[in-house]
């Protein structure tokens, strides 16, 4: 800290005046932004019937509820307590397996449909505007209607059961993955495509030998990410009768089977955790392979 000469007072005043002028505008903008957000929050609070008093009164209920659903485990015989807490383990594990299978099949079917549609929706592969825009709108529709709404309608059309959940997840996945896939396709290196079409390859051959090798690892990574999301989604499909563990959870929570609520919740959280970790591993390897190429 040597050689720092203090500024003369008038120079300092001039500089800090400039600084204040420069930051003042930005600061006013920020304040205006905050005021706008606060006003919107107030309106939203009114519409959403936020009652801070009720909340403050009942927040004790939240902790009480958490205490209630916590399992009765004593120090004297913890093993037996855990065993009685998880009295339904075989049934629940079966339902969890069903949930995972639903997510898997939904991701697979939706991924295949999205895969096929993504090439049609990609601007650099399809010249026909009509075809491309049609594919894009179709994907948008699949993506915007929530999967539970599809499930609600399908339950009436197809009857109760996990098949409905799979179909609902598959449709939503088609929309979500199709969009991501087509964005990947739009960002590829076009030289191999030009090379192949110059040597007379058909459209399908071009896609197979010029596009696929470039996009496959990215596709796999997105599909895994979607699988992770779909596991969560499949967990609540049972709320509308579309299979999986959700139904059991809903029954437990509606009938106040407190210990069951926590038991199933812990199972769901653990499953999602494991799937998260596993898919993250695989995805990092895929992305690593992509960057090494």
């Amino acid at each position: 800290m040597r050689g720092l000469t203090p500024l003369s007072p008038e120079r300092e005043a001039a500089l800090s005046g400039l600084y204040a002028a420069a930051t003042g505008a930005a600061r006013r903008r920020t304040l205006a932004g905050f005021a706008l957000v606060a006003a919107l929050a107030l309106v939203a609070g009114l519409v959403a019937e936020v009652r801070p008093l009720v909340f403050a009164e009942n927040i004790g209920k939240f902790t009480a509820y958490i205490q209630q659903i916590l399992p009765p485990i004593s120090l004297e015989h913890p093993l037996e307590d855990v065993r009685s807490w998880y009295w339904g383990l075989p049934k629940w594990l079966g339902l969890l397996g069903e949930t995972l299978l639903m997510a898997y099949l939904g991701t697979l079917l939706g991924g295949l449909a999205g895969f096929a549609l993504s090439f049609v929706a990609a601007a650099n592969l399809v010249r026909s505007r009509l075809l491309r825009v049609g594919a894009k709108r179709l994907l948008e529709l699949c993506r915007t209607v929530p999967e539970v709404v599809f499930a609600l309608i399908f339950v009436i059309a197809f009857g109760l059961g996990p098949m409905v959940g799979v179909l609902a997840i598959a449709i939503h996945t088609t929309g979500a993955l199709g969009k991501l896939f087509s964005e990947v396709v739009e960002n590829i290196d076009m030289r191999p495509v030009e090379g192949l079409s110059a040597s007379g390859a058909t459209w399908v051959q071009t896609v197979r030998f010029a596009v696929l090798p470039q996009v496959l690892s990215n596709f796999a990574s997105y599909a895994l990410l979607r699988f992770e999301i779909n596991v969560r989604g499949a967990g609540v499909m049972g709320f509308v009768g579309a299979g999986g563990i959700g139904q059991e959870f809903l029954v437990a929570i509606r009938n106040f089977y407190y210990a069951d609520v926590s038991a199933i919740l812990v199972l769901i959280i653990l499953t999602v955790f494991c799937i998260d970790l596993a898919t993250e591993r695989v995805r990092h390897r895929l992305i690593g392979a992509e960057q090494a190429r």
Binding site: V47, A48, E49, V50, R51, V54, F55, N58, I59, K61, F62, Y65, V148, R232, G233, G235, V236, F239, F249, L250, I253, L265, I268, I269, V272, F273, D276
Partner: peptide, 24 residues
């Protein structure tokens, strides 16, 4: 991660027990 892995609908069921039915 725990907060994230519980689905919105499950959170909603839990909060309904605390603040009652409704948008809140």
């Amino acid at each position: 991660d725990v907060m994230r892995s519980v689905d919105v609908l499950i959170w909603a069921l839990i909060w309904i027990n605390v603040v009652g039915l409704g948008p809140f």
